[in-house]
């Protein structure tokens, strides 16, 4: 498939620009996606449960302090505690159910040239990060992640200040993936031309 094209003056000899039939391109949607760590759904549940419980505590305290008996607030806005508890209920439901729905729909594939990551239940996305554009990688883990033996891997292409995070990997998997990406970055950097001379943008 690959065949070197003739080079004009100013274009390095090693530059090749092979044609590729669009039909022969691999389709990421048919790939064998690696799911996230099985404990990630439980970790997400716990992670979402904490703020829900905090909100519940705030609502309960407010109800006890301001809406007890025939207080001024109870007379003027007696429906507020009910609204608060409805919000707490929705948060609890979300924290318990949503991770079970969302986690199986996330996954990643490390290929020879790039890393793919899919996510989303209703609004779905597939992100692709070529290794030769990744500047560096980072692994981080919050106390809750460590409690479940998980870690998050971030990749940083140029221009992406916050990086792109793949959450919910096993600690060992994250480290192996990071090492693989670093190796690929090193290999890509070794084959990158050192000079560009008069070449166009």
């Amino acid at each position: 498939m690959a065949e070197s094209t003739p080079v004009d003056a100013g274009i390095p000899d090693r530059f090749v620009n092979p044609e590729v039939p669009p039909d022969s391109l691999p389709d990421p949607e048919t790939l064998d996606w690696t799911p996230l760590h099985p404990r990630f759904a439980r970790r997400s549940q716990v992670g979402a449960l904490i703020p829900a419980l905090v909100v519940g505590a705030v609502v309960g305290t407010c109800q006890f302090l301001f809406f007890a008996g025939g207080s001024f607030m109870a007379q003027r806005a007696g429906w507020l505690p009910a609204l608060g508890w409805m919000i707490v209920g929705a948060l609890l439901f979300r924290s318990l159910v949503w991770p079970l729905v969302a986690t199986p729909r996330r996954g990643y594939v490390a290929r020879e040239k790039d890393l793919l990551y899919k996510s989303g239940v209703f609004w779905r996305s597939v992100q692709a990060f070529p290794f030769n554009r990744i500047q560096h990688t980072m692994i981080d883990s919050a106390p809750l992640d460590r409690r479940f033996g998980l870690a998050n891997l971030s990749v940083f292409p140029a221009g992406a200040n916050a990086g792109h995070k793949i959450r919910g990997l096993g600690e060992e998997t994250a480290e192996r993936l990071r090492a693989y990406i670093s190796e690929r970055i090193k290999n890509e950097a070794a084959t990158e031309p050192a000079e560009y001379g008069h070449e166009p943008a």
């Binding site: 609004w123 992100q127 692709a128 140029a158 221009g159 792109h164």
Partner: peptide, 10 residues
């Protein structure tokens, strides 16, 4: 390009 993202709403 640095990365590519394909998005789909319902």
């Amino acid at each position: 390009a640095q990365s590519a993202i394909l998005k789909q709403s319902p």
